[in-house]
Design a binder for these strands. Structure first.
Length: 227
DNA sequence: AATGAGATCAACCGCCAGCGT
DNA sequence: CACGCTGGCGGTTGATCTCAT
């Protein structure tokens, strides 16, 4: 049995959003907040898939989006976070207020990759290009992924693993700041509840506190030869 | 002015984790 | 435990823009 579609494809619009559609979506979310994306299109009078509505809101319509060019500081922060987390765009976006995972992913692929290559750095391993092949194994050993929980791609396990590898000090406040919400930009009280729910997802299981990525940046900054 | 190549970025797709039943 | 539903994520696509020729 195949997976059921997320919406009635025959009756949904696709492609670029019109101003009218944007307005309907914004009006609806202003009135009712972010809620059940599946039922939102019908309730808002949109002939769109719920997923499409969510994406449009998160990546384009959210009021707290920064937009515009990335600063040099943001560039460096993205590079450092990517070195730590890999292609975990949503986690990276969570440390860049006003930026979305999609935006960062695009920016990485179009600008930063080239920037790193021009510096002679492999964008995937963050090691010098001519040493990439031999050092990949070495770098992997440094992080000792042999003991990584399976599957490594599971964010909570993955963060837990990095936490242990680098022995981060927990910082309970780090994700309480509105600026640090991962690509949702929630502000109202009821939305804060959702944030709490989200936070819970990534909490360190043993102590219930947050991973402080600023410390991780410090570790990498101290060893500038790697970035 | 025309056009082709490359760059950019919004949007889609498929997969997966978490949750409720 | 198994299953279905939903939200969220990362990879990819394709329309549009920009620039060189």
């Amino acid at each position: 049995m195949g997976r059921s579609p997320c919406c009635e494809k025959a009756h949904t619009n696709k492609g670029a959003w019109t101003k009218d559609e944007d307005q309907r979506l914004v009006d609806y979310i202003r009135l009712h907040g972010e809620g059940c994306w599946r039922s939102l299109p019908k309730a808002a009078g949109l002939r769109r898939c719920g997923k499409s509505c969510r994406l449009r809101w998160i990546n384009y319509l959210r009021p707290d989006l920064k937009r515009g060019n990335f600063t040099e500081e943001e560039d460096e922060l993205i590079i450092k976070l990517h070195g730590l987390l890999g292609n975990k765009w949503s986690l990276i976006a969570g440390r860049l207020p006003g930026r979305t995972d999609n935006e960062i992913k695009n920016y990485w692929n179009t600008h930063i990759k080239r920037k790193l290559i021009s510096r002679g750095i492999d964008p995937q391993t963050h090691l010098p290009l001519n040493e990439t092949t031999t050092n990949t194994v070495k770098a992997t050993m440094e992080l000792d992924f042999r003991n990584a929980p399976k599957p490594v791609s599971k964010p909570s396990f993955y963060l837990d693993f990095i936490y242990n590898q680098f022995q981060f000090k927990p910082n309970a406040d780090s994700l309480d700041e509105p600026n640090c919400t991962a690509s949702s930009g929630m502000t109202t009280e009821e939305e804060q509840q959702q944030l709490q729910k989200k936070k819970k997802k990534h909490d360190h299981p043993s102590n219930g506190q947050e991973l402080n990525l600023e410390l991780s940046i410090g570790i990498h900054s101290a060893d500038s030869s790697r970035v």
